[in-house]
Design a binder for these strands. Structure first.
Lengths: 320, 320
DNA sequence: AGTTTAGCTGAACAAAATTGCATATCAAAG
DNA sequence: CTTTGATATGCAATTTTGTTCAGCTAAACT
């Protein structure tokens, strides 16, 4: 197996300093200058170390009180969509921060709800990436993480394989990956890939998962699926023309949640949509205005039991 | 029962705003000015709300990476004192912040280690107060908190009764208090108090606890036991002359951990020291240079199983 | 050696956060 | 309707934090 270059290495490899500085700054409440004296380093370096600590999730923030309005939305969502649980966070003021905020909440949820022995089937998306990043690194015995999606051929920072690996590493889980590209070049190749013994084995494990964590993608142009270029712009247009409102597990579906009839959906190497129902507890993590349509579609045709989202999306889902 | 004035009410009763502001500030990383626009309030008010949020523990900070040197100390402590677990945090740069730092760690420990059905016997101290304050408010089913100490007659911010109540409230536990003063005026009164049916009942419950959380006090002059004035300065001197190095559960003990022979120890209304051995899992939370002697004494004569402390104290305990 | 390059560093500046203080607001009491 | 006291607000001065940039060092390359 090739060397696993697990993201660019931190600029400050000295975890000791990061942790110490973070303690003094966040817990003890000292000023950065004071910390620089204590640690015997420059003030600016302290600042940079603290930034790195936040960046890497060495310090985590947890907001305890629930926001009243959000709690109401949670209740409405549970009722309307038959969820067992809903988490609604305040919407990010800055649109592009939505994944950050929702990911944060998802991390908190997962930290509290993954138990010994759980098998987690994992989807993919920017929001999930943030969730995984913020997950505390605490081993949970006999857990398993199984990726429901193939990988990207050229390693990208945002990659199903990478996400699953990182998740597994955080909770000390065994990790199973689909050793195939997300999209094969041709449908026949997809079938060939998927019928591989090793692939079938991983899909089988995913089917036995008790938790699925997944996200959905929209057609907005900052969507990774649009930008990474494994689907041609022309195909994206065709998909939309065919009624697709977005993707779930890289399958494009229409407003009713049904896969659209398009070649792309026959090239995808992923856990089959219709088999999601084998997984008892499906957690959908997604939010932001632009995701409302695809979220509604996903909710319509998949038995989601937990929804983690933001106010904007929650209101959008509940309107009309 | 008199009205329970549970600490001065927050200056900003609007939990909604606090939570929202905290999300935007800590999770999304917005500036206070930007938040003031979003929430439609003054910039300075945002600042004050955030302060209140920190103050009240609405936001919590968690530092994930362990500090290498601390981990080594933890190992040494476990070995040297036969502990099942040890937690060592960096020492506060500012001496007076030690309780804050250690309390933070204790809160994290308790949050992870209190389980459904646990019965927790609780001591008292500044460090414990901080620990309780930082504890996340999450109900844990069928838990019980039992105070091992009597209360202060004049309500003080730092009060065994208050601490137990707050702890119980945080985890949704039933709460049992010792309805007597910490120190009776005369030994005979102590005996009378302690033989009360209601008191015996609480002591009995404490004896059945599976977890005890306690701290120790030293003779340093910022120690609450010295300042609150229920022990006269002359008595404190006598105690020291008699060999006492500090107190555990308000019993004064010598360097070997044995109660000194002094009237004060016959006036204390608390769970009896020698019965601590009935509680299987005793967590000692304390730290700072000046506590080394009393901590060593406590460790010598009580089967502590978990020690939560700081670098200074850890080094002190391990030296010689 | 001479040159290039990447990585740090801190000085100087810009932005943001914090605090003390004066003023404004409001409700209860007169 | 006024007074009074408590509380809340914002201004301004100050401290702290964040950012940019130019210099420095040392390893890598020619």
């Amino acid at each position: 197996m090739a060397t696993m270059e697990n993201e660019r290495a931190s600029r400050f490899p000295d975890a000791e300093l990061k942790a110490r500085a973070a303690w003094h700054y966040y817990v003890e409440g000292l000023t950065q200058e004071r910390i620089s004296e204590i640690l015997g380093i420059g003030r600016i370096k302290v600042h940079r170390i603290l930034s790195a600590a936040r960046e890497e999730g060495v310090v985590q923030f947890r907001i305890r009180d629930s926001v009243v309005e959000c709690v109401q939305l949670e209740e409405s969502l549970k009722q309307r969509f038959g969820l067992s649980q809903a988490v609604v966070v305040p919407s990010a003021a800055d649109r592009s921060n939505a994944p950050l905020m929702i990911g944060h909440a998802a991390a908190a949820y997962l930290a509290d709800n993954v138990n010994i022995g759980d098998v987690i089937a994992l989807g993919w998306g920017r929001t999930l990436k943030f969730a995984i990043k913020e997950l505390p690194r605490r081993p949970i015995a006999r857990t398993t993480v199984v990726s429901m999606l193939g990988g990207l051929t050229h390693a990208q920072p945002l990659n199903p394989t990478e996400s699953a690996w990182e998740f597994a590493e955080k909770i000390g889980a065994e990790c199973f990956l689909l050793p195939v590209p997300v999209y094969a070049d041709r449908p026949e190749q997809r079938d060939a890939f998927m019928s591989q013994r090793s692939v079938q084995d991983v899909v089988f494990r995913a089917r036995r998962a008790n938790i699925a964590v997944l996200s959905v993608g929209s057609f907005s142009n900052d969507s990774p699926i649009a930008n990474y270029g494994f689907i041609k712009p022309s195909e994206l247009e065709e998909l939309q023309a065919a009624g697709a409102v977005g993707d779930i597990l890289c399958h494009f579906i229409d407003a009713e949640g049904r896969p659209v009839d398009h070649e792309v959906n026959r090239r995808v190497c992923a856990y089959p949509l219709q088999e999601l129902s084998d997984i008892p507890n499906i957690i959908l993590v997604s939010g932001g205005q632009e995701k409302v349509a695809i979220m509604r579609a996903a909710l319509a045709n998949t038995k989601i039991s937990v929804l983690i989202t933001d106010e904007d999306a929650a209101k959008g889902l509940l309107s009309r």
